[in-house]
Design a protein around this nucleic acid. Structure first.
Lengths: 220, 220
DNA sequence: GTCTATAGGCTGATAGAC
DNA sequence: GTCTATCAGCCTATAGAC
């Protein structure tokens, strides 16, 4: 397990799967592509993971555990160092995703895998995410609510969803913004994170009253 | 083509494909599933669409043309009725997506198909979307820039991406917000749209200076 | 743990009768 | 336009040698 240790067959499979899942989706990636890219035998994936579905879950867990831990520890530091301030809480949510996106060791693919997972209405994967990482979102919700005592809970949770959606799409590099020449990938993502924190900070501080629901446009 | 006309084979294929694409993604949906759900022969899809890839494009075009037209006409009305105001422009972007989501005739699946399209790094589909509908986003960018003369263009485009991400995510019903009992699907979505407009309005109006890029968290 | 070989099934697409 | 029949290729998963 030293720093110079070879990547194990299992880790090579995970890394290859992550990259391919990001590129082609879960259904769009075959185990043959994975094992070929990882330079292992086709039978190895079933030996180590049992099934393709289980491989998907393991690809997820490996990075998501890291990102969730980063978020929670940064949240804790934000709450003790800057009590009552929203921006450090937002940063604690956004910046770990940025860190994953910038991770040299293949983490960049992971943020796109997250976006995939959201799109998958896949029951088992979504339950897996909710069961294992739902508490992180709840912790952030509580911390934000303490900063915004006048905001009703429902509006707060809507805004958390908006933040998560915007973050997912920004980090996965969907959207119209193209990275200009001369700007590194890292700078570009860091810019996205900083822009998003500022955008969301203003958004969360928007007036707390319930908005009047728009008239149903399909009736017009 | 009267109102009581039967759905054609072609339309039945499009409708079935749309629902299945929303549920299982493009790669995850087989043409056999499509033709089985549409109750047409397996050969019909190749007769009417030529290939699976072309079917994907046509599923998109059918609704996207409608949504883009709704957005542009509502934008035009916003600009003439409320010149210089940002909120009606935001509404013109958000509410047509809501209208699609609420459309009785299967449009609800379409907003999830959009989310799929974002997640699929699918080159040909992305080019198709950019070529055919990129001008809509550019029109909105111009209209918003006129409302926010102090905002540099790059920040504006970041925020448009955040808006698009949050909208997609909200309309596709990802996220933590669960619809309470006694609230109809339509009310729930309308609430999402109204909340998002308010959130985004505050976000777009956030101070215009370039934010300091956060230090790279992966170095910490 | 890693390999070869293969089972058994599904895929997109097409040829050709009607 | 719609059907049946079929192609060639790919898929996941497993059995069994080493």
């Amino acid at each position: 397990m030293g720093p110079a240790a070879q990547f194990s067959t299992k880790d090579r499979i995970l890394g290859a799967a992550e990259e391919l899942f990001a590129l082609h989706g879960f259904a769009g990636t075959s185990l043959r592509q994975v094992t070929s890219k990882a330079d292992v035998n086709i039978a190895a994936v079933n030996y180590h993971f049992g099934s393709k579905e289980n491989l998907v879950n393991e690809v997820f867990r490996r990075r998501m555990d890291v990102m969730s831990a980063l978020r929670l520890s940064q949240l804790e530091r934000a709450l003790s160092a800057h009590p009552g301030q929203l921006r450090p809480i937002l940063a604690a949510f956004v910046e770990p995703a940025l860190a994953m996106a910038l991770d040299r060791n293949g983490g960049g693919a992971f943020v796109r895998v997250i976006a995939r997972a959201y799109a998958e209405k896949n029951d088992s994967l979504r339950r897996f995410l909710s069961d294992h990482y739902g508490h992180v979102l709840r912790d952030f919700g509580r911390a934000m609510a303490a900063c915004l005592p006048d905001l009703d809970k429902e509006t707060l949770y809507w805004r958390l969803d908006f933040l998560a959606g915007a973050l997912t799409y920004a980090m996965a590099d969907f959207g119209v913004i193209k990275r200009p020449q001369g700007v590194s990938e890292a700078q570009h993502r860091a810019q996205a994170a900083a822009e998003l924190i500022r955008f969301a900070e203003a958004g969360f501080h928007a007036g707390g009253g319930r908005p009047t629901a728009s008239p149903d446009p399909s009736e017009a």
